[in-house]
């Protein structure tokens, strides 16, 4: 089942075309890795898919209907985005911050936070945050804050997760447990995940598909085993690569 699809999508930043003619289907059960050099359009792509910035051309459809025909609330019920940077607001607690994830599913007058407690608690537990639930967000470490944002996404419970560098600030253990969790989600029917990341080897270990953005309009997409090879990666990153066999497949390292 195709959840989100792009037809001839074009992405520009002032003075430059980042992606052009992108035809791309994201289907339930897929875990996509988006890679490319700095400024190649990964973040722009994710935010455009979420309907948060206009595309320079082409069409995005959600369940075969143009994205523009949906209300913001309907989009938020179906997809959630993890931002690379979190804007800071007025001080609130971890629990209040996570509760925001329920917003797309609640009515205007549905004020009882108690009913949401279980959902919130289990998501915070998944992200290893149950012990800091009552703390103000500004007392958390960088990695804990990142996990709080991920927990908020889990509470939002969409079909499609758009993750912009989810492993930023996470320690080794939490990088693995987070990606384990999302690959488990993507494997379940009706969910799919798109992740932009510079953690090439982690991404290749957990993702099923890959989208390469060359930053000059060119792109390539497909199954990881069909698309990834050292030559392509060298062209993508414009850096010589070495390959070593590892316990989860090949390990690619910069030479």
């Amino acid at each position: 089942m195709t959840v989100l699809s792009c037809q001839q999508l074009q992405l520009n930043v002032p003075g430059k075309t980042l992606v052009s003619g992108l035809d791309w289907d994201i289907e339930a059960g897929q875990f996509w890795l988006v890679i490319g050099r700095n400024g190649s359009g990964k973040t722009t792509l994710l935010q455009t898919l979420a309907g948060l910035r206009p595309a320079a051309g082409g069409e995005i459809s959600l369940h075969s209907q143009p994205l523009q025909q949906y209300r913001r609330r309907q989009i938020a019920q179906r997809m959630a985005i993890l931002f690379q940077h979190q804007e800071s607001g007025f001080p609130i607690t971890v629990q209040e911050s996570a509760l925001a994830g329920r917003h797309p599913h609640r009515g205007l007058w549905d004020w009882s936070d108690q009913d949401q407690h279980e959902t919130v608690f289990s998501a915070l537990q998944t992200m290893d945050l149950a012990s800091v639930m009552q703390l103000p967000v500004d007392q958390l470490s960088g990695g804990e804050r990142r996990r709080l944002e991920l927990a908020t996404l889990l509470i939002q419970d969409p079909e499609l997760y758009l993750l912009d560098e989810p492993t930023n600030h996470l320690d080794l253990h939490h990088q693995i447990s987070t990606l384990e969790h999302f690959s488990g989600l993507a494997a379940a029917p009706q969910h799919c995940v798109v992740m932009a990341s510079h953690e090439l080897n982690l991404g290749l270990r957990y993702c099923s598909h890959v989208l390469l953005l060359y930053g000059n309009g060119a792109w390539e997409a497909g199954r990881i085993d069909e698309v990834i090879d050292p030559e392509r990666l060298e062209r993508l990153y414009q850096h010589p690569m070495t390959v070593q066999p590892g316990s989860h497949g090949n390990i690619y390292l910069p030479a």
């Binding site: 913001r72 938020a76 979190q86 804007e87 209040e96 925001a100 994830g101 917003h103 007058w109």
Partner: peptide, 24 residues
């Protein structure tokens, strides 16, 4: 009163509010 939950989200940033379903 009905605006308040949206104000809470907007206070955390317009982009985040939009991604959580607020027509900013």
């Amino acid at each position: 009163l009905p605006l308040a939950t949206r104000l809470n989200l907007y206070a955390q940033g317009p982009m985040r509010a939009a991604s959580l379903g607020v027509a900013v």
